[in-house]
């Protein structure tokens, strides 16, 4: 696709979604923001795993870095909201670059373990440094919507607008990267590292770049998630990394468009769980564990039966029919 056409498509769909948000229920608007954020988080994994063939079980940690740095710069330096996003994105990218430097030398299982260690370990820091304010977390706000938007323009709508514009901007950037020279290099690397090396591709550098960008994308997603929710260790723990991986696997890991699908599923699971939990009698144990149960079952079934994601399966099925 021509990049100009792509640009128009992105702008057009953003406008449509912004307009739509004015017409629908408050709760759905909030969920829309969640979906957009998860989609961004998932695409950070798609970029890394689907394109450059590296695995990360710790992108939740990059989201945490994005959220905390964004919140800290708002609290202590009173930066305008947009600049806190920029700070969140670049801090996470920096962390990604450092980690990526080591990661480029590691094969799958080692990298999986190291990033998992990050996902488990990083949130514990919140309780160790007073500036991070422990379990309570940090206060990070979007501010109220401008008054000239009118009375009916609620805080949730404001969330959604901010989130959507930022997500779309970043997605546009990611989409362009993946179809650029870099994207093709990553694919070549993933397919056949030796051949890629022989044809003069700098394997290490290219992998580090993928890690850096992926972390940056996750960082922005984290800042946005912190803004609409809260910035604390429980929201950014292993559970988040786990959700991102699940979403990425469900969406097939190779397509950015698929990340939307994964995100919708992630947001739908708690809804579904609450319906089922209600039937089962709504005990605390059931309600708090059912979403996790559904998500992990879904994850296991997906890797068991459609190892490359449902989307891939459908594509194959079509190809076979023809």
């Amino acid at each position: 696709m021509h990049s100009l056409r792509r640009l128009f498509l992105f702008i057009f769909s953003t406008l449509i979604l912004l307009a739509l948000s004015l017409k629908i229920e408050e709760l759905r608007v909030y969920q829309g923001a969640q979906i957009a954020i998860y989609a961004l988080g998932i695409s950070s994994i798609v970029l890394l795993t689907g394109y450059s063939g590296q695995v990360s079980l710790g992108n939740g940690a990059f989201m945490a870095i994005g959220a905390y740095t964004a919140a800290l710069t708002q609290i202590h330096w009173h930066l305008p909201l947009f600049f806190t996003f920029v700070v969140g994105t670049f801090s996470a990218a920096l962390a990604g670059a450092i980690l990526g430097g080591g990661a480029a030398r590691l094969s799958g299982p080692y990298l999986a373990g190291a990033t998992l260690a990050l996902a488990v370990g990083l949130p514990t820091l919140a309780n160790q440094f007073t500036i991070l304010n422990g379990e309570t977390g940090l206060d990070y706000t979007s501010g109220t919507p401008p008054t000239w938007f009118g009375e009916s323009f609620t805080l949730y709508k404001w969330f959604f607008w901010i989130v959507l514009v930022n997500v779309m901007l970043m997605m546009f950037f990611v989409r362009n990267i993946t179809s650029s020279r870099y994207g093709r290099t990553w694919k070549a690397l993933r397919g056949n590292p030796v051949a890629a090396q022989l044809s003069g591709i700098q394997v290490g550098g290219s992998k580090v770049l993928a890690f850096t960008i992926s972390a940056g994308v996750a960082g922005l997603a984290g800042s946005l998630l912190g803004m609409i929710g809260f910035v604390g260790p429980t929201g950014f723990g292993l559970g988040l990394s786990f959700a991102l991986v699940t979403g990425a696997v469900l969406s097939g890991v190779t397509s950015l468009a698929g990340s939307m699908l994964g995100a919708v599923v992630l947001v739908a699971i708690p809804e579904l769980a609450s319906v089922i939990a209600h039937r089962l009698g709504d005990t605390e144990r059931v309600t708090s564990n059912l979403p996790g149960l559904i998500m992990s079952t879904l994850l296991i079934l997906t890797v068991l039966f459609t190892p490359n994601g449902p989307a891939e399966q459908i594509r194959k099925h079509k190809a076979r029919k023809q």
Binding site: G50, G53, L57, G108, A112, F242, V245, V249, I300
Partner: peptide, 15 residues
Amino acid sequence: GPVAALAPVIASLGL
């Protein structure tokens, strides 16, 4: 495929 290579790791995480 990219996921298939990671399938065991991901399955263990799911478990």
